[in-house]
Design a protein around this nucleic acid. Structure first.
Lengths: 345, 345
DNA sequence: CTTTTAATTTGGAACGTTCCAAAAAACAAG
DNA sequence: CTTGTTTTTTGGAACGTTCCAAATTAAAAG
């Protein structure tokens, strides 16, 4: 309503003190007399004063803003990741620019540069596919802490927070083998991402470990989405010798695989074993409940936020690379040992 | 790396012009000579200058920041809504504070006030359950455009963008009736939200229209989530006379209902008809593909962003209330007319 | 070469804070 | 009442931009 926002000097004037004193009050400085503090605080309420953080940032040349760029908010894994970050960021008294790159490197570049203009204190980035080290370099060089989550970008010298994809995949395959599976597929994902590479490596090594020869046809590429899972199953149905189970790139693919199996009249978890990756919230309630490698997306988001906050407060520290451990949660989607199915058939 | 960020005066100095001229160049003013413009632009690149939008905001007392608060990012409806907003906001040269309230009014209040301190130019709010008009009033009074999406808050004088819940629910029920259903449930949601109320009203009126008496037991409350859908089905299984189909509060509940039916050995879409609400991305690929009332979340997000941008540019305009229309997309989850099921049984 | 007009450029004040050195006030001790 | 000490308060410069009125330069006209 007011012509102009009420500022610190308006308060000062009303309280009969100087703007410096008001500033001190706002910062909760112990220097001010209790009496004046109360008077000032009262006025702040009465006049509807709102602190102008932008002005403060300008003066101090530092901000309380953290940039977060996520490649796909639509995927609940990333949505949960974002929620985890949000919690941490807010409770540290920061505020976040959260943007969605939609896997577009161009858009990602735009939002990062826009965030930079707006003076972020740090950046958490879940990079879009195809991100190059040079996309991150200028930011990092200017001294702004950057933390890469979920996906790494080769050639960068910034902190990373990744999950142990290799161990997770290996554990999953071992579990399938222990249930009696021998024909195990790996579904979803494209070769150009590090995540895919690591999980695939875990798959291969676990098979080798059990002396099961690798059938190249059994690694079925597809989009890392629910629709991709459906597509992968369709592809699989044409095989002469079909797998009896699959490790999926992520939970979204796994759900898609369930969908695809059903439309081919195969009951997921009964006629075919499925393991996902991520442990998205729905994994628990889905039917069949999804056996999956739990990455704890919210927790990961929180840790990422903590990491970037730590680096902001510490001035400049050496980049840190954290690999978070991962655990297999066994639920219903692998059903009973494979022997029983053969009896059923 | 540099001790201090390079500023407009550094450039001015290097180019042998005044800071005013550099400022003019940055704003793309036609006043500057082509020669000097080029010189300045070259220097800007060379010296790695980055524009300080905060300082500009301070001077102009307006910002290019839009606040977005969403009650639950984890729900893909809202995630998609956020993505739609993001697209619009970015392409208008704005940047967004996106926060997640997690249905907590307290947290919502905190983030809104923090956004205010950071000088947002407008706010898009999908209010947490239980939001009061007084939570929004101070912001709106200070002249910052506010747009409410998805959920309304009674007693506020701000713009709203809601979907036609009543008509959507009515259309859904008519469809079920046309397939031969008579025992139709309404699943999910709690009474205290406007959305629930409107959809329920559509349900009731459509039944009345067809002279089907309302069975109060058939409106089954539950959390508006996937888990809530499962719970609702469990409740339903105890009924002596069970419904043959259900309209669900939203797609998340609908998916949960599918899960719940399966664990009771009822095949969704074959033994029971299900209609969702929202038309989330997975609705298309799920098996059975979900018949649902399409709200087009991304489109809605875009429209919300457009609305707030319009109000920002127009200075102050009267609040606008938009109800977006909605359409029933028929897919597989209602299966064949109910007659056939009886023959099957 | 002057004068007029148009095209460019430019200091300095302002935006709302924080910070610093220094002033003022309050209190204690002699 | 002085002097010294501690507590509290205070102007003004600074942060990096935009804006304005005014100054300078270039071009056109006489």
């Amino acid at each position: 309503m007011n012509k102009t926002r009420t500022s610190i000097v308006d308060i000062a004037h009303a309280a009969g003190v100087s703007k410096s004193t008001v500033s001190l009050v706002l910062q909760g400085s112990p220097l001010v007399n209790e009496k004046t503090r109360e008077k000032v605080n009262a006025l702040i309420g009465d006049l509807g004063y709102v602190y102008n953080r932008g002005a403060a940032n300008l003066r101090q040349s530092k901000s309380k803003i953290i940039g977060i760029v996520v490649n796909d908010l639509t995927n609940s894994f990333f949505a949960e990741l974002a929620v985890g970050m949000d919690m941490m960021v807010q409770s540290a008294g920061y505020v976040q620019f959260l943007a969605h790159s939609g896997e577009s490197v161009d858009r990602q570049r735009e939002v990062i540069s826009s965030m930079r203009e707006n003076g972020i204190a740090g950046l958490i980035l879940s990079p879009a596919r195809g991100t190059k080290a040079s996309d991150i370099k200028p930011l990092a060089d200017s001294g702004i802490p950057v933390v890469l989550v979920v996906r790494n970008v080769p050639g960068t010298k910034v902190s990373t927070l990744l999950s142990d994809n290799y161990a997770g995949a290996k554990a999953a395959i071992r579990h399938l083998i222990s249930l009696g599976h021998r024909r195990i597929a790996f579904m979803g994902g494209f070769v150009d991402t590090a995540v895919f590479g690591e999980r695939l490596r875990g798959y291969r090594d676990a098979l080798a470990e059990a002396n099961i020869p690798l059938n190249e046809k059994f690694v079925i590429h597809s989009a890392p989405s629910r629709a991709g899972g459906v597509a992968a199953v369709d592809r699989m149905m044409d095989f002469a010798e079909r797998p009896t189970s699959a490790l999926c790139l992520n939970d979204a693919v796994a759900f898609g695989v369930c969908d695809g199996l059903r439309s081919n009249n195969i009951e997921p978890g009964k006629g075919f074993g499925i393991i996902g990756f991520d442990d998205v919230i729905e994994a628990k309630t889905a039917v069949p409940a999804l056996t999956t490698v739990s990455v704890d997306p919210q927790g990961m988001g929180q840790r990422a936020a903590q990491l970037v906050l730590k680096q902001i407060n510490a001035g400049q520290t050496d980049p840190e690379s954290i690999v978070t451990s991962v655990r297999l949660v066994v639920r219903q989607s692998c059903g009973a040992p494979v022997k029983q199915w053969e009896e059923l058939a």
